[in-house]
């Protein structure tokens, strides 16, 4: 059974690398579910990723993230650049279900083969992303999409996890969502490589932008010289400039992105090793035996797994 499974995932990996979008759709489901198949698929594609630029977009609900993404996709498509999108929406804490509607605002691209959009439910994971976001972005990368945009759940002020996945994080704000105090609070505003004030067609937008600029002036250390861009996704104002700024930042940080990505990849490899060990435990030790293990036995098992883990991270 397991060898059969492995072959199936290897076949899927091949189709994915050949640019079959059905295979990508399927691969995203596989890694999202995080089971044995996910490990087999990630292994089959090891070394196939690391080429794409990943840009994260975060900000409070109603800031206009989806609409702005739609406008940005138009800009990149005008240049003929293919764009893949992971749109993460909240999950119901009651039922575990979700209505994923972000792509509704990107409907204009539904017939464009140069755009691939996947809706993702956060599946109860905090931090603004789904647990498998890393792996899902990797699948898009391995399938040859050169630019991957990730839209996080617009949940609140602490959805900072995007920096672990993205090469560049764009924080989107909008007027009317808070006063001056909001601008100096810790949280998502601190992770932005680029701050955007959307909806500048509104009268109070300039005030919001000024608050953000004042906050940046008070900031010490890194990320002090970042720009606050004024855009309106609705009218299109400033969207081209935002796209240019993102392109430039990606270009400028090209070298450091490589090193940074390497670091993130090592961390992920470690996580993969832990997962692999966890699946070995679940395969090899029954729930009953596990409960019956004496503390010293458990300690030995953990020691062995750590030793195993460090050798596997090396390769």
């Amino acid at each position: 059974m397991s060898s059969n499974k492995k072959t199936r995932m290897e076949a899927l990996a091949e189709r994915l690398r050949a640019g079959d979008s059905r295979a990508l759709g399927r691969a995203l489901t596989v890694v999202e579910s995080g089971d044995d198949d996910a490990l087999a698929l990630t292994e089959a594609l090891a070394g196939a990723f690391g080429e794409a630029h990943i840009v994260g977009f975060t900000g409070p609900p109603g800031a206009g993230k989806s609409t702005l993404l739609d406008a940005l996709i138009h800009e990149w498509r005008k240049e003929g650049r293919p764009v893949a999108v992971l749109a993460v929406d909240p999950v119901s804490p009651v039922s575990g279900g979700a209505v994923l509607g972000d792509r509704t605002r990107m409907g204009a691209h539904s017939l464009d083969d140069g755009v691939f959009i996947r809706s993702v439910s956060a599946r109860g994971h905090l931090g603004g992303l789904c647990e498998a976001a890393h792996d899902m972005a990797d699948m898009m990368d391995a399938a040859g999409w050169p630019l991957i945009l990730i839209e996080t759940v617009g949940a609140g002020q602490s959805e900072t996890e995007i920096t672990q996945v993205a090469d560049l994080s764009v924080v989107i704000s909008a007027p009317g969502l808070g006063d001056e105090l909001q601008a100096i609070k810790a949280g998502i505003l601190e992770i932005g490589d680029l701050l955007v004030v959307n909806k500048v067609d509104r009268d109070d937008a300039d005030e919001t932008a000024k608050h953000l600029e004042a906050m940046l002036a008070l900031r010490s250390g890194a990320k002090r010289d970042i720009s606050v861009l004024r855009v309106s996704a609705a009218t299109g104002r400033g969207v081209t400039e935002l796209k240019d700024e993102i392109d430039q930042l990606l270009e400028a940080t090209g070298a450091t992105v490589g090193a940074d990505r390497k670091r993130k990849r090592e961390a992920r490899k470690r996580r993969l090793a832990v997962l692999r060990f966890a699946s070995r435990i679940s395969a090899g030790i029954s729930e009953e035996d596990f409960r019956a293990m004496r503390p010293e036995e458990l300690d030995r098992a953990i020691e062995r797994s750590l030793a195993l883990l460090s050798t596997e991270v090396e390769d």
Partner: peptide
Amino acid sequence: LRDAGMEVIYTPPWQEIET
């Protein structure tokens, strides 16, 4: 369907078959 725990991808009306 959402309340039954499913993930629903919802689109507005007027879709084409190809979409």
